[in-house]
C-alpha cells in the first residue's frame, strides 16, 4: 500500500500544475479503496434505514450510516469533524430519535404501515434525482484530484480550533444563541400549557 501511496504522491505532484495528469480510476490508491468500501457500507446502511419496516432497526441502521460518514471524514483528513460527528450524531441525535420512538409508542416488531402510499412516486423522484446528480457530478469532477498527502494538515483539532476562533468566532457565538433558543423552545413546547406539573414536565425533563 505504501508503494501505491508514494506513486499517488508523485502523481499528484504532477497533477498540481495541470489537470490532465491526474491518475485514472483504474488504479485506485489505498485510501480510495477504503473510502469506496466504507462508502458502500454507509450507503447500504442508509438505504436499509429508509426502507426497513422495523422502526427501531431504522434508528440502529442510522447509527451505522452516520458512523460510516465519520470514517469518511477521517479518510478525508478532517478528524475533528469526524469526532464531532461521532459525539453529536451517534451519541446524541440517535439517542434522541430512539427516545422519540419510545415516547410515541412505536411498535417494536414489523409495522406494515411504515411506508406511506406514495412510495412509487418517492422512488421515482429519488432515482431520477440520483441519476441526474450523479451524471452531472461525475462529468464535472472526473479529473479533479484531492491532494491529501502533501501540504499542511487541514482538519486537525489545532487547525479547526484556530480558524474557528479567529475567523468564525462571531457565527460561532451566534450559533450558541441558536442552541439556547432551541433548548428553551423544546422545553416550552414539551411542557403543559397552564403551569400544571403533569406528565408533560416529566417528558421535558427526560429530553
Amino acid at each position: 500500500m505504501s508503494a501505491t501511496v508514494s506513486l499517488a504522491a508523485t502523481a499528484t505532484a504532477t497533477a498540481a500544475s495541470t489537470a490532465s495528469g491526474t491518475p485514472g480510476f483504474l488504479s485506485p490508491t489505498g485510501v480510495e479503496i477504503l473510502f469506496l468500501l466504507v462508502g458502500l457500507l454507509t450507503l447500504g446502511a442508509a438505504i436499509t434505514a429508509v426502507t426497513t419496516r422495523q422502526l427501531v432497526h431504522a434508528a440502529l441502521w442510522l447509527v451505522v450510516a452516520l458512523g460510516g460518514i465519520a470514517v469518511e471524514y477521517l479518510l478525508l483528513s478532517a478528524e475533528f469533524i469526524a469526532w464531532v460527528q461521532v459525539l453529536i450524531y451517534v451519541g446524541a441525535v440517535v439517542v434522541l430519535l430512539l427516545f422519540g420512538l419510545m415516547l410515541t409508542r412505536a411498535p417494536i416488531g414489523r409495522s406494515p404501515d411504515a411506508d406511506s402510499g406514495n412510495r412509487p412516486v418517492a422512488l421515482a423522484v429519488a432515482v431520477t434525482a440520483a441519476a441526474v446528480l450523479v451524471t452531472v457530478v461525475v462529468d464535472a469532477f472526473r479529473t479533479t484530484w484531492i491532494d491529501l498527502e502533501n501540504g499542511a494538515p487541514q482538519g486537525t483539532t489545532d487547525v479547526t480550533g484556530r480558524i474557528l476562533f479567529q475567523h468564525w468566532v462571531l457565527p460561532f457565538e451566534a450559533l450558541s444563541v441558536l442552541l439556547l433558543a432551541a433548548l428553551v423552545g423544546a422545553i416550552v413546547l414539551s411542557r403543559r400549557g397552564d403551569g400544571r406539573n403533569g406528565t408533560g414536565a416529566a417528558d421535558g425533563g427526560e429530553r
Partner: peptide
Amino acid sequence: MHLAYPAV
C-alpha cells in the same frame, strides 16, 4: 483521492 468519490 478523486473528488468524484465523496461527491458521488
